[in-house]
Design a binder for these strands. Sequence first.
DNA 1: AAAACGGGGGC
DNA 2: GCCCCAGTTTT
Length: 216
Amino acid sequence: MKNTKKNIIKTLEAMSSIENLTMLAELKEKHTPFQMLIATILSARAKDEVTLPVSKELFKKYGTPKTLANADSRIVKNIIKKIGFYNTKTKAIIATANKIQDDFHGHVPETLDQLMSLPGVGRKVANCVLVYAFGKNAIPVDTHVHRISNRLGWAKTKTPDQTERRLEAIIPRKYWPLVNETLVKYGKTICAPISPFCSKCTVAVSCPRIGVIKSR
DNA sequence: AAAACGGGGGC
DNA sequence: GCCCCAGTTTT
């Protein structure tokens, strides 16, 4: 099957049959943009089942830029310890809270460049905040999106950055926010990194199986 | 381009 | 006990 825009949209719709929301889509319901930002920073290379409860626990004490900016790093470190990379992440989220206070009047910025200027925020986290916290058009590319895009032949790329450019070129803007949500859900369940459940994949017919890229 | 950061969950 | 996990920063 050729990678026309119509076919890609059809494939995305076919993959969206999975009913569970991603962690970020779930968090969106009851959390502020600042809390979405912090939870997204914390989620890097960590599992949702750990990140979710830890984030909620953190927000009980430090749920605003003001409170987190002035937090005791030892207490924060202890709360988020289970996530891993906790030294780095503690420093990052406190510094980010301070920068939001000092440079952005206490509000999470809404542009990609400004978000990426925050400590601990790279392109993926910034794009996630744009999509999940502010409802803007962007395509956050994590390992799931990168892996599946390459398996399906939508992209033949080495880096997530290249994948993002490619997807933005071949997918109409109005579908951009769906790409991350759909592919992450699909990647967690069917199109797994190591042993994908191809027998249960509803879009296998569209999958050229151009090699199986490494999990990381 | 490669290394460092990391505890917890799954098997 | 070993491997993996919604990346980012530093070397």
